[in-house]
């Protein structure tokens, strides 16, 4: 028996919108720790890891570990039927091949349930080791989204370079090239507007902008984004999901042929 009640149902709606472009089908795993997902895009160069900790739910019942295969486009269709203020409850019985999404309006005058078929998904689970990153940049998520969008009108790849001067996003294409430098800036009115750069050593890596733009679909989840870079490792682009968890996107760097 599985029963997860999330008062801030809009978080789940936003999570789905953040990952459905990158991943088509995925297993959602439920355990005592929480509700999680790990999935790769079809070409296996990007990976998304989601964790919503059990403490973040108003009610969390998971009698035994459960893996539920879902088509994310179909989940998104279901969740789009929930109002932004609705309380969302996920329910599944042991051995069932369906999951039920229950939507309650804030004043309890409307209750809907949507049952969705589960699917068998054969997915490989990668062990992601804890890594020391050469540079960690925390910046406003809207600023990062704007940079990725702007640069993708010029080129296909972005070089992200972190030095003691700041973080530089560069691209080049047929019509020309572009460089955007963001300097560390902690003298702002609100902490979420700050750009904070922690650098152990300079790092410069190249990534496909198509994927970066896809990651920025998570922007509505958090005012800030954290970008962790290390040479020879995938970049980690992390958005916090309120105080209950995170979405982490991993992207392999472009390498020399």
């Amino acid at each position: 028996m599985l029963e997860l009640r999330l008062v801030q149902g809009s978080l789940l709606k936003k999570v789905l919108e953040a990952i459905k472009e990158l991943v088509t089908d995925a297993n959602f795993d439920c355990s005592a720790t929480g509700f999680s997902l790990q999935a790769m895009d079809s070409s296996h160069v990007a990976l998304v890891a989601l964790l919503l900790r059990s403490e973040g739910f108003e009610h969390y019942r998971c009698d035994r570990n459960l893996s539920m295969g879902m088509n994310l486009n179909n989940v998104s269709k279901m969740l789009r039927c929930a109002g932004n203020d609705d309380i969302i409850t996920l329910k599944a019985d042991d051995g069932s091949d369906t999951v039920t999404f229950m939507f309650e309006s804030p004043n309890q005058d409307k209750i809907a349930d949507f049952e969705m078929k589960l699917m068998d998904i054969d997915s490989e689970h990668l062990g992601i080791p804890e890594a020391e990153y050469h540079a960690i940049v925390k910046m406003p998520s809207a600023e990062f989204a704007r940079i990725c969008k702007d640069l993708s009108s010029i080129g296909d790849t972005v070089v992200i370079s972190v030095t003691k001067e700041g973080v530089k996003f560069s691209t080049r294409g047929d019509i020309g090239n572009a460089n955007i430098v963001c300097r560390q800036n902690t003298t702002v009115d609100k902490p979420e507007e700050a750009t904070i750069i922690e650098m152990q050593e300079p790092v410069s890596l190249t990534f496909a902008l198509r994927y970066m733009n896809s990651f920025t679909k998570a922007t509505p989840l958090s005012n800030t984004v954290t970008i962790s870079l290390s040479s020879e490792l995938p970049v980690v682009v992390e958005y916090k999901v309120a105080d209950m968890g995170y979405i982490r996107f991993y992207l392999a760097p472009k390498i020399e042929d």
Partner: peptide, 14 residues
């Protein structure tokens, strides 16, 4: 700079 490695190159399968 052309190809990207797949995730399996970086992270072990468990």
């Amino acid at each position: 700079l052309k190809t990207q490695s797949r995730m399996e190159r970086f992270f072990r399968c468990s």
